[in-house]
Nucleic acid binder design. Sequence first.
DNA 1: AGCGACATTGTTAGCGTTCACAGACATCTA
DNA 2: TAGATGTCTGTGAACGCTAACAATGTCGCT
Lengths: 352, 352
Amino acid sequence: MSQTAESTGPRRAPTMADVAKLAGVSHQTVSRVLSDHPNVRDSTRAEVQRAIEQLGYRRNSSARALVTRRTLTLGVVACNPTLFGPASMLFGLEEAARDEGYMVSAVTLRRYTAKALEEAIDHLSDWGVEGIVVMVPHRAAVAALAELRLPFPVVTVEGGHNLPIAGVSVDQDLGARLVTGHLLAGGHRTVWHVAGPSDWLEAEARVQGWRAALEEAGAEVPPPLVGDWTPLSGYRAGQELAGRVAASSARRGAPEVSAVFVANDQMALGVMRAFREAGLSVPGQVAIAGFDDIPEAEFFAPPLTTVRQDFTAVGQASIRMLVSRLESGTTDGDERVVIEPRLIVRSSTTQI
Amino acid sequence: MSQTAESTGPRRAPTMADVAKLAGVSHQTVSRVLSDHPNVRDSTRAEVQRAIEQLGYRRNSSARALVTRRTLTLGVVACNPTLFGPASMLFGLEEAARDEGYMVSAVTLRRYTAKALEEAIDHLSDWGVEGIVVMVPHRAAVAALAELRLPFPVVTVEGGHNLPIAGVSVDQDLGARLVTGHLLAGGHRTVWHVAGPSDWLEAEARVQGWRAALEEAGAEVPPPLVGDWTPLSGYRAGQELAGRVAASSARRGAPEVSAVFVANDQMALGVMRAFREAGLSVPGQVAIAGFDDIPEAEFFAPPLTTVRQDFTAVGQASIRMLVSRLESGTTDGDERVVIEPRLIVRSSTTQI
DNA sequence: AGCGACATTGTTAGCGTTCACAGACATCTA
DNA sequence: TAGATGTCTGTGAACGCTAACAATGTCGCT
């Protein structure tokens, strides 16, 4: 009259032993079936498979990780994933990781301090990640990272090239040279620049490329304005620049504003609004170029000349690098992969 | 002459036993220190802490998960996280999860089929997530989800209200009514609509809200155009609409195009470009409104009237719901949290 | 028949934690 | 001083899996 064991309770997930008993084999045989070991008789394999299906069995990942010493999990520290760039990287990165058989756990940073970064990494370590990708192109953060000497491989994205950390990056300098060169070739005497926050490595590299391009062309280097990547900050910078356009004939000491390279597309949008409101035509009176090629850029008024970064490729490359380090057991070394950006010319810089 | 055990090899991470030996206590005491158990003498605690520091010890999460049966990991299935909406939700969600002591693992969907969703969930299950948030507002996907009967709690985001699944959503219907009402109040005889893909629940709800608002106002309901959320598709729809504006006096059967409600901001951008190219002024000849309030919307030419969704709040609410279900052990029930959207009026709909 | 090689299966011992329980010792009460 | 209560600490057994090895059966060959 006894039922099949307990009938109530939040019955626990079936274990390998349960499957084994049902299939009439040992738990080890079940393990062999699950890991596709060749030496299992076909009939046995079928029997085990049936038992697995019937019980809805799934391997317990914790037990497995405990004995194999592999969590198959990678960590990512991301900055503001609301922006198109970081989001795309995360997308490509996750896909690549999954293809390699890893799971990705991401932590987003609220503040860009060394402490916040350490906390984020701590959090990931607590969960046993095997390696991490740090997507925080922020000077202080990367410097802190270099100090850290973590017990697992670390790969940075846009982490700069001065530090002994492996990483993937887009050639920001080249990108900036491309746009600046393009504007100069359009006949402008010089090119103004609205930069990103000075503690962002990407912003710095773009400033450098811009400056170098101007200097090489023998053009005057106007003082760069600084924004914070948001359209609003671009708008403010745009107002400032618009004032200079109006006053340019009267003003001494700064060259005429006829071309502006803005460090990202969002700020460029803000700049264009400011110009529009000031009655300046783009590209008629002022040419504008951005950076990133967000999906909206092609539809701005006017469509924006910009530099396309293949974010997805960056994400994928970072995973490939991380996985290869994982497999080879390398924790340090400063291997670098650089991805070339591409100039996309649209009507914000070209008179029709 | 014997050294302190082996000196070479990739020495394994220290374990609790190592700490215990160094501190001269049992492993259990170490465990107690780590979990802040009160009954540990202060001097012992200090000793253990020192040993932990010295060895750089970290608790092994797999072993811990194995015995406690808690992985403290939540899964997320996201659709295209490159878009502002999904990305923001992911952001808010991760932050909320971290505050609750959970780790988040995200999987992004490449295709929106039932099979792809099942694979994604399988992937997450393999890693032992305790519950998942499904952010795929796609009809087929959500329907498949309802069939699945998973052994852990599931919360949907924008999952529609016809199915017996718990979830969080923004009141899309209300949002659409707000914009449509706003446009009608602006004196337009009717409002055209550029919808999202028909198999997206959000798109459908917006169509419904728009239609209802028109019908309640006794306005004619023009046939909705359909896009795929991208600026390009909006551009195409815009060209179509621009054609109608030009031909409107001559054409029979469809009302005049003087106001358009576009189902998201990106498409609205495309529509505006098409209108600009057709020489139509916005809002002079045609008023346009979008949906989402992406950060760029305020800086479009002209700034776009739209509906703001608090994506971050949605992400947070979904985690709260998931965690509460986790704690109460609920797997089913169709609890719903609805978040109200807000109309943001800008100059794309208001004559100055 | 006897032996080796191979295929197939089972047995045992961890992996590094936490939990339940059992000691040891100190302190308080009668 | 005996007993009862606490406080602190240690011991042993899980948790569910894989790895190493041992045990069986099967086949072919001499």
